[in-house]
Design a protein around this nucleic acid. Structure first.
Lengths: 216, 216
DNA sequence: CGTTATTTTGATATACTTCAATAGGGGTGG
DNA sequence: CCACCCCTATTGAAGTATATCAAAATAACG
């Protein structure tokens, strides 16, 4: 699993080109919100560049990030009238926006588009199941190992940049900032990863990291 | 939100009837497996009666239940060649099995079927996001409160039977059997629920339970 | 009814959180 | 170019929710 272009490995599939004709671009600065949980759900989005996070909040402000959407990813597929999570820019980002009404019409005309969307939804569901296993049953070390391997896979190599802060990682993995930081430090001391600065990561011992990630 | 038939509230939507023509029934005893994680993914299933659990395992046996599928629910929508989780009967159950090849053909012929499947997938994705929030950020008490309210909503009333064991609930909520049991006891002592035997639950103070579930 | 599986309850242990302080890093203005 | 500041990250010490280990009680089942 190396060297696949990110778009091919993740979001883009056959039948997608029809969609591109009805999309309009959208530029976001770091921290800006694409839509809020509960907003009318009237569009789908594709990430062109940058990173987006999906967030859900509890009444007292506790936050859970459901997914990070990176270049090539499609998101916003909802059911019913309202968005089920809010979406925010992790970094400066460019999106393409597809009005829902037009997408739905397209699905009626071209079954390939429907299959494409179903495929994307199924992919997100796969990721969600993986994440539920992580959140429900993995230790902090196992969560960080899983996360780093997933980021490496997306980047297509063993050296990559983390676009998000420790706070984002913590809210994605169901941990605190401090535990994330301590676990990074520990993996570095154990020689499984190398860090340059705060965001550049190199996988140093992939096998050991994989053993940890799957609970061996 | 009361009195809706379970099927209408959850799995069944317009465009479903086409599917029924190609389904074949399937009977399972408690504990039997529908399919294993990694099996070739060649069918979708609908629950007619009983309850099914989706499971993922870590190398050392730790288990996470992703979803419970109850009467009316459709499951097995996968991407690619293999099942992403195993599915087991929580109770004796009757399913309908839809061969994937035929479903895919149907999607090509009748766009409504595709929209239906997309809707089901989106519903599952909604549930998964809710569950990620629960697993990542909620306390044991909040998890149990959320779970009981969801079960009540499915049953259409405030009095219902739990078809699954404490072990299943624990593996669904990312807790241990003991913590599940202690939390049930505590909610009972606080007068928020009533229990008859081990599986009959009555919601006694819905407002208080909802406040807890959403982290107030 | 005896036997086994499941659930509840109790005592202790621990992984992670919380609270608190220090250190680094990147940008801006002097 | 350096100094300052703010934001983010790291490190440390103490606390806590939940896990683990162990036993009793209840329920399920032949």
């Amino acid at each position: 699993m190396v060297g696949l272009p990110a778009a091919a490995a993740r979001g883009t599939v056959a039948g997608f080109s029809e969609l591109d004709r009805i999309g309009t671009p959208l530029t976001l600065k770091r921290g800006e919100t694409v839509f809020y949980e509960g907003d009318p759900a009237d569009a789908y989005y594709k990430v062109v560049s940058g990173a987006i996070r999906s967030c859900k909040l509890l009444a007292d402000g506790r936050r859970q990030i459901g997914q990070f959407f990176l270049a090539g990813d499609l998101f916003g597929l909802g059911v019913g009238a309202t968005c089920l999570f809010s979406a925010e820019a992790v970094t400066d980002a460019v999106l393409v926006r597809y009005a829902r009404q037009q997408v739905d019409r397209l699905v009626g005309e071209a079954p390939a588009v429907g299959r494409c969307l179903l495929l994307v939804a199924a992919r997100h569901l796969t990721a969600a199941h993986q994440q539920m296993l992580l959140l429900g049953r993995k230790t902090a070390e196992e969560r960080i190992a899983s996360f780093l391997l997933a980021m490496a896979e997306h980047s297509g190599g063993d050296l990559f940049l983390l676009p998000m802060t420790r706070a984002d990682i913590a809210d994605y993995l169901g941990l605190t900032i401090e535990t994330v930081s301590r676990t990074f430090t520990q993996l570095r001391h154990d020689g499984l990863i190398a860090l340059r600065g705060t965001s550049e990561v190199a996988i140093a011992d992939r096998d050991a990291l994989e053993d940890i990630a799957e609970g061996a």
